[in-house]
């Protein structure tokens, strides 16, 4: 029930008076759109590393993730499950929660993967961690972007568990932030989370501390 109170009218009227506009909102929308389209956008839209082969991008993303103290691993497309198994063994985990849509070929034998659809926070809090894919990864900023889609799931999944393992395919990596937005545009209304390293704070004497409320441990598996 949107509340169309007189405050709405008051605010809009005050804005229009201040801007010296007519009281009717009949201002040609096309003019506004045209003005918006003509704004200066001379910043870098596409990176240069991808043209020099994918290695530059992978290295940049790896460097950035390592700076955030995330773990970074690599695997070939056919070796995802094996790599996941090794990472979990290294972390001493017996299994992870997964969203719907995680392909069976990501999942190694000998570990327990629980479909966490509809799990509440308490249930997720009791898991050892979560395994997801992503929509896009940004090398320049070391970010992985998750949306509510297959193999990524609801936002709560990558939030409550203390450990997050994210599978990123080489083709999902872009260099610059604007390139990521170009890819996300079509699904811009989905719940979307940009994750850049484990949760952190610098609120006490500007000392960076990892892991306040979000997952304290983030591993990224790059599939090349």
């Amino acid at each position: 029930m949107p509340e169309i109170s007189d405050h709405r009218a008051r605010i809009l009227a005050s804005i229009r008076v201040s801007l010296n506009k007519g009281m009717s909102p009949a201002q040609a929308e096309a003019n506004i759109a045209a003005e918006c389209a003509n704004l200066d956008r001379k910043y870098v839209r596409t990176g240069t590393r991808a043209t020099a082969g994918h290695d530059g991008l992978l290295e940049l993303l790896t460097d950035r993730l390592l700076e955030y103290d995330a773990g970074v691993y690599r695997a070939a497309p056919e070796g995802i499950a094996a790599a996941v198994g090794e990472i979990l063994a290294g972390r001493g985990k017996r299994g992870l929660a997964i969203p719907a849509g995680v392909p069976a070929e990501w999942l190694p034998q000998g570990y327990e993967f629980t479909l966490a659809e509809g799990f509440d926070a308490y249930q997720l809090d009791a898991t050892e961690g979560v395994l997801t894919g992503c929509s896009v990864a940004i090398a320049e900023t070391g970010s992985i972007v998750l949306q509510n889609a297959a193999a990524q799931g609801a936002r709560i999944l990558s939030l409550v568990p203390d450990y997050h393992l994210c599978v990123v395919f080489a083709g999902q990596i872009v260099e610059e932030v604007p390139e990521a937005f170009a890819r996300l545009k079509a699904t811009s209304t989905l719940p979307t989370t940009f994750i850049s390293g484990p949760s952190a704070t610098a609120d006490i004497e500007m000392t960076r501390i990892k892991g306040v409320h979000g997952p304290r441990f983030l591993d990224v598996l790059l599939v090349v």
Binding site: R64, Y68, I138, E140, T141, G142, S143, R155, S188, P191, T192, T193, F194, I195, S196, G197, P198, S199, A200, G214
Partner: peptide, 8 residues
């Protein structure tokens, strides 16, 4: 370069 979390 990017803060840990951005939500939309």
């Amino acid at each position: 370069r990017m803060n840990p979390y951005n939500s939309t």
